[in-house]
Design a protein around this nucleic acid. Sequence first.
DNA 1: CGATGTGAATTACTTCACAGCC
DNA 2: GGCTGTGAAGTAATTCACATCG
Lengths: 263, 263
Amino acid sequence: MATGRNHRPATSRSRGIPEATVARLPLYLRALTALSERSVPTVSSEELASAAGVNSAKLRKDFSYLGSYGTRGVGYDVEYLVYQISRELGLTQDWPVVIVGIGNLGAALANYGGFASRGFRVAALIDADPQLAGKPVAGIPVQHTDELEKIVAENGVSIGVIATPAGAAQQVCDRLVAAGITSILNFAPTVLSVPEGVDVRKVDLSIELQILAFHEQRKAGEEPATAPAEVDTAPPAAPPAVAVTKRPPESGPDGDLPAVMPA
Amino acid sequence: MATGRNHRPATSRSRGIPEATVARLPLYLRALTALSERSVPTVSSEELASAAGVNSAKLRKDFSYLGSYGTRGVGYDVEYLVYQISRELGLTQDWPVVIVGIGNLGAALANYGGFASRGFRVAALIDADPQLAGKPVAGIPVQHTDELEKIVAENGVSIGVIATPAGAAQQVCDRLVAAGITSILNFAPTVLSVPEGVDVRKVDLSIELQILAFHEQRKAGEEPATAPAEVDTAPPAAPPAVAVTKRPPESGPDGDLPAVMPA
DNA sequence: CGATGTGAATTACTTCACAGCC
DNA sequence: GGCTGTGAAGTAATTCACATCG
C-alpha cells in the first residue's frame, strides 16, 4: 500500500483513535456493507475479521476505540455498526472532490464507481490542456486550470486529487491549498510539501512494485520457483571511498528514473 | 496509502530489514536518482531526508540496516547509494509484469512511465473481453484471458497486477497463482485470499479517500475552514440493543457500496 | 569539526488471555 | 456457553542523543 501522512507529530491521535485503526475502518465498512446487502443481521468478530482479512483480536481492539457496539455472546449488529463506522469516518457528510489532471489515470478515477458512493462526489474535473476543456469525461465536463480557484470556492471542496505529471504536481498542490483545500490524495510520484494542517496521502504504483520486487527477490533464494531473467548490471566502481570525488556522468547502474505520470 | 501485506508472522523480517524500512527505500531511491541526474556527487542525511519527506534520524537508521554506506563528516555518495538500494530492492534484475483487466485503470497503468524504468517491464496485457483482443494499448496488444497461463509460463512472470472489477479479482488471482505468480498488486476493492508464500499488496482509492475524510472531519470542529455541505442522514434506529432482531431491509443510513472498479 | 552510525528510550501497534456480560 | 471488551505482555517502529571517525 502506498500511503503518506501529515499530522501532528504522529502521537496525538485525532481523538484517541490510532492511525492504524483508522486505516482499517474502511476495510471493515466494506465487509459490513456486503453483509448488509445480503441482509445478514449480526456477525461475530471472527467472521467479520476473516472477511476483512485481519485477525479477530485486532478487530475487537479496533472497535473498542469506537465504543462498545457489540453484544457479548452474540456479536455485532451489522446495520448499526455500518452506521457507527460511517459516522466515525465522516461519511455521513457529502464530500465534494476535484480531480486535477485528466489523463489516462484521471479519467480512470473519474469513472471509478467507488467514488460516487460513500459520500464522495466528483464536483469537477480540471486539466491544463485547453483542448480538453468542455469535453465530458465520465459525464462531467473538463474545466480549465484557470478556473481552479473558482471551482474550489464555489463548491466548498476540501478534498483534491492530483493525477498530473510529476512536474506539475507541486504547483497544482500549491494552488489547491491556496484555494482552501485541506486534504490531498496524490498520485504523482513526488513528495509534496504542504503547510501545517493540510493532509496528504500518496498512492504510488512504482513504490508498490518495488516493495513486491524486494520480497520476490528473497523468495528466489529459497525455492527454485519462477526465476526472473538475470540482467547484466555493472557493479558500480565505488566503495564508500573517497566520496567527494565526482565521478564522470556515465551515470550509475541504472538508466533513467520514471517520475512522469500518464497524465 | 493503501497497502497490504502477506508474510511470515510479520516478525522475521526478510533478512533483518524491517518492513517499514523496505517501504521507504523506493522513496530514497527516487530522491537519489533525481540528485544523480543533476550530477550531485554527495548528499547528507539531512538533505536527502528532506527530499524524501522523512526525518534524518529515520533515514540514517534505515540505511544502517543496509550497511555503512556513508562517510562521517561528509555524507553519502549518491551513485553508490543508488546502486546499493537498487540491489537491495532487487531492481538490478528484470521483472516482467502482466496486467490483467485493461479498462480505464489498466490502460492507465500500461501507459504509466514509471513502469518501464526501474526494471519493470510490461510483458503482457490481458483482458476477458474478446473485443479487446489484439488491439494495442500503450503499444502492447491485449491478449485474451484464455492465454493467461501460457503467457505467465512463457515469460517467466512472477508479478501480476490485477485491475479488473471486484467480482473477477479473486478468480483472476487464483489463476495467476496457479500459473506460478508469487506477487500480486491488487487494484480491485476486494480482499484476496492467497496461499502461503504469495505476496499481495493492495491499492485502494476508496480507502484512501475515507481516511482523508476522517481527518478532514476532525479539522472541521477546530477551524472554521471550508465546511463541506451537510447532508441529511437519518440516525439509525438501533442502539446495540436486542441484536438478533432482524430489522427490515429498509437498509441503513448508506445506500449502496461501490465495489465495482472501472474495469 | 561535522555528519554518520547506533545503543537506549520512547512511542505505537499487535497479540494474548481472560474477566465480564448476554 | 459463547463472544465481546480490555488490561497486560510482547513486538515493531520511531526518536533521541552521543560516541565515533573521516
